[in-house]
């Protein structure tokens, strides 16, 4: 059954896409900022995993935590120091600002790491899973499971922690939240930090699957866009649904039309969706 295999591939891909997009979605939904740095944050996370493994033998799955923490700090600093200054400005301004920042970060990565594609070659890969007629590489599945876990963790954090509730309050009504004593600029910075943290962790997980290069950042950014529009903005379940939907679409699209049309397909779909249902499959809700 080739379709089962294609379906399984799509689901694995989808779990990773959800992790790629969830931080982007969080920042967009809560801060109304399109963070064009997101793709580079992911790549940076991959490099953390790559060098962690190459020099210290740390498994990328463990590096995910380190990358998450480092990028949280970076994201927090970027928001607190730069983006917060223009957070109230029109869309065009924040978008342009993150574009400029991304040019700088991406260029810096090119200088430091070069454009060469690198790859984490695990000394002891997990082998492959055989489920009846379906073959799946074990590391890929493990990465996907971890990606789902991370996303679920973010979901719980937003729902159950004080900071999470404050973030949701800011998303729903900035002024009201401020009046109730929420330090909005700090919450902004934490939110941006969390977005970057998710990007970094996802990047670390992806390091065992995708080749690593600064040139890949726009690829990841594009995926995050499509997932957000597919699933609806600013909700963790939305990112999950969007991620899985994109994974399945790409997997089946590649099977039916050939892999070279995958990008056209996903962007074409994005346009159609924006046209007919701009609020996404799950629709727009509060951040839950």
């Amino acid at each position: 059954m080739i379709y089962l295999q294609v379906l399984a591939n799509g689901l694995v891909l989808g779990g990773l896409y959800a992790a790629i997009a969830v931080g982007f979605s969080l920042v967009w939904g809560v801060l109304n900022v399109i963070n064009l740095l997101h793709g580079s944050f992911i790549v940076l996370g991959s490099y953390v995993a790559f060098f962690g493994y190459a020099y210290f033998g740390i498994h990328p799955f463990i590096s995910a935590a380190i990358a998450g923490l480092l990028l949280f700090a970076l994201g927090y600093a970027v928001q607190a120091g730069l983006v917060n200054r223009v957070i109230a400005a029109p869309v065009l301004i924040t978008l342009t600002l993150t574009f400029g920042l991304d040019l700088i970060l991406n260029n810096a990565m090119l200088l430091v790491f070069s454009a060469d594609y690198r790859k984490v070659n695990l000394a002891s890969p997990l082998g492959s899973l055989e489920l009846g007629p379906i073959f799946l590489p074990g590391d890929r599945v493990a990465a996907m499971v971890l990606a789902f876990l991370l996303t679920a963790l973010l979901y719980r954090l937003l729902r159950d922690s004080r900071i999470g509730r404050a973030i949701i309050a800011v998303r729903m009504d900035r002024e009201a939240a401020a009046l109730m004593g929420v330090n909005v600029s700090r919450i902004n910075a934490i939110t941006f930090g969390l977005g970057a943290c998710m990007a970094g962790a996802a990047g670390a997980l992806l390091s065992i699957i995708y080749p690593i290069s600064p040139l890949n950042s726009s690829l990841f950014l594009g995926k995050a866009f499509v997932v957000c529009v597919l699933g609806g903005l600013g909700s963790v379940p939305g990112a999950m649904v969007g991620g899985v939907a994109l994974g399945l679409i790409e997997s089946f699209g590649a099977y039916w039309f050939g892999p070279e049309h995958a990008v056209t397909l996903s962007f074409g779909l994005l346009l159609v969706l924006l046209f007919v249902r701009p609020s996404g499959i799950l629709g727009k809700r509060g951040y839950e």
């Binding site: 600002l97 400029g100 991304d102 040019l103």
Partner: peptide
């Protein structure tokens, strides 16, 4: 070059 352009933008 790209970083300089980025800096101008920022």
């Amino acid at each position: 070059h790209a970083a300089m352009l980025g800096l101008i933008i920022v």
